[in-house]
Protein backbone atom coordinates (compact mmCIF):
# COMPACT_ATOMS: atom_id res chain seq x y z
CA UNK A 1 0.00 0.00 0.00
CA UNK A 2 1.17 3.46 -0.84
CA UNK A 3 2.16 5.60 2.12
CA UNK A 4 1.86 9.32 1.65
CA UNK A 5 5.19 10.97 2.46
CA UNK A 6 7.01 14.26 2.16
CA UNK A 7 7.62 13.89 -1.58
CA UNK A 8 3.92 13.66 -2.37
CA UNK A 9 3.21 16.88 -0.56
CA UNK A 10 6.11 18.64 -2.25
CA UNK A 11 4.94 17.49 -5.69
CA UNK A 12 1.40 18.66 -4.94
CA UNK A 13 2.75 22.01 -3.78
CA UNK A 14 4.91 22.33 -6.90
CA UNK A 15 1.84 21.54 -9.00
CA UNK A 16 -0.13 24.24 -7.18
CA UNK A 17 2.77 26.65 -7.73
CA UNK A 18 2.75 25.98 -11.47
CA UNK A 19 -1.05 26.31 -11.62
CA UNK A 20 -0.75 29.66 -9.84
CA UNK A 21 1.85 30.95 -12.28
CA UNK A 22 -0.23 29.67 -15.22
CA UNK A 23 -3.40 31.32 -13.91
CA UNK A 24 -1.52 34.58 -13.39
CA UNK A 25 -0.31 34.62 -16.99
CA UNK A 26 -3.53 33.65 -18.79
CA UNK A 27 -6.22 35.37 -16.72
CA UNK A 28 -7.18 38.86 -17.80
CA UNK A 29 -9.61 39.43 -14.96
CA UNK A 30 -7.95 41.03 -11.93
CA UNK A 31 -9.73 38.74 -9.46
CA UNK A 32 -8.58 35.74 -11.50
CA UNK A 33 -4.96 36.90 -11.22
CA UNK A 34 -5.39 37.36 -7.48
CA UNK A 35 -6.55 33.75 -7.24
CA UNK A 36 -3.33 32.75 -9.02
CA UNK A 37 -1.27 34.58 -6.37
CA UNK A 38 -3.26 32.86 -3.62
CA UNK A 39 -2.49 29.48 -5.18
CA UNK A 40 1.25 30.19 -5.03
CA UNK A 41 1.01 31.39 -1.43
CA UNK A 42 -0.90 28.24 -0.52
CA UNK A 43 1.71 26.12 -2.26
CA UNK A 44 4.25 27.71 0.05
CA UNK A 45 2.04 27.06 3.09
CA UNK A 46 1.65 23.42 2.09
CA UNK A 47 5.42 23.09 1.72
CA UNK A 48 5.96 24.64 5.13
CA UNK A 49 3.47 22.37 6.85
CA UNK A 50 4.82 19.26 5.10
CA UNK A 51 8.42 20.07 6.02
CA UNK A 52 7.36 20.82 9.56
CA UNK A 53 5.57 17.46 9.87
CA UNK A 54 8.10 15.20 8.15
CA UNK A 55 11.44 16.96 8.48
CA UNK A 56 11.69 18.78 11.77
CA UNK A 57 8.79 17.37 13.75
CA UNK A 58 8.31 20.80 15.29
CA UNK A 59 5.49 23.28 15.07
CA UNK A 60 7.50 26.20 13.67
CA UNK A 61 6.68 25.54 10.03
CA UNK A 62 2.98 25.40 10.81
CA UNK A 63 3.21 28.70 12.63
CA UNK A 64 4.91 30.24 9.60
CA UNK A 65 2.06 28.89 7.48
CA UNK A 66 -0.41 30.68 9.76
CA UNK A 67 1.46 33.94 9.15
CA UNK A 68 1.36 33.32 5.40
CA UNK A 69 -2.43 32.87 5.59
CA UNK A 70 -2.78 36.13 7.51
CA UNK A 71 -0.62 37.93 4.97
CA UNK A 72 -2.71 36.51 2.11
CA UNK A 73 -5.82 37.91 3.78
CA UNK A 74 -4.22 41.34 4.18
CA UNK A 75 -3.17 41.32 0.55
CA UNK A 76 -6.67 40.37 -0.58
CA UNK A 77 -8.06 43.37 1.33
CA UNK A 78 -5.64 45.75 -0.39
CA UNK A 79 -6.34 44.06 -3.72
CA UNK A 80 -10.08 44.63 -3.47
CA UNK A 81 -9.52 48.31 -2.63
CA UNK A 82 -7.26 48.72 -5.67
CA UNK A 83 -9.73 46.86 -7.91
CA UNK A 84 -12.60 49.12 -6.80
CA UNK A 85 -10.53 52.21 -7.61
CA UNK A 86 -9.63 50.75 -10.98
CA UNK A 87 -13.27 49.90 -11.66
CA UNK A 88 -14.33 53.46 -10.81
CA UNK A 89 -12.04 54.76 -13.53
CA UNK A 90 -12.45 52.18 -16.26
CA UNK A 91 -15.76 50.45 -15.45
CA UNK A 92 -14.04 47.07 -15.80
CA UNK A 93 -11.44 45.01 -13.99
CA UNK A 94 -9.97 43.62 -17.17
CA UNK A 95 -6.24 44.29 -16.80
CA UNK A 96 -5.71 44.58 -20.57
CA UNK A 97 -7.87 47.70 -20.66
CA UNK A 98 -5.24 49.56 -18.68
CA UNK A 99 -2.76 50.31 -21.42
CA UNK A 100 -2.06 54.01 -21.05
CA UNK A 101 1.42 53.36 -19.72
CA UNK A 102 3.96 51.94 -22.13
CA UNK A 103 7.22 52.72 -23.82
Amino acid sequence: MLTIGLTHYLILAAFMFCCGLYVMTIKRNAVGILIGVELILNAASLNLVAFSRYKTGLLDGQIVALFVIVLAAAEAAIAIAIFVNYYNNLATIDVDRGDSLNG
Binding site: I82, N85, Y86, N89, V95, S100, L101
Partner: peptide
Protein backbone atom coordinates in the same frame (compact mmCIF):
# COMPACT_ATOMS: atom_id res chain seq x y z
CA UNK B 1 -7.71 59.91 -9.48
CA UNK B 2 -6.32 59.60 -12.98
CA UNK B 3 -6.39 56.35 -14.86
CA UNK B 4 -2.63 56.01 -15.08
CA UNK B 5 -2.17 55.99 -11.31
CA UNK B 6 -4.80 53.26 -10.98
CA UNK B 7 -3.17 51.23 -13.72
CA UNK B 8 0.25 51.67 -12.15
CA UNK B 9 -1.17 50.68 -8.76
CA UNK B 10 -2.70 47.51 -10.19
CA UNK B 11 0.49 46.47 -12.00
CA UNK B 12 2.64 47.20 -8.99
CA UNK B 13 0.33 45.27 -6.71
CA UNK B 14 0.28 42.15 -8.87
Amino acid sequence: SDIRAQEAGLKYFF
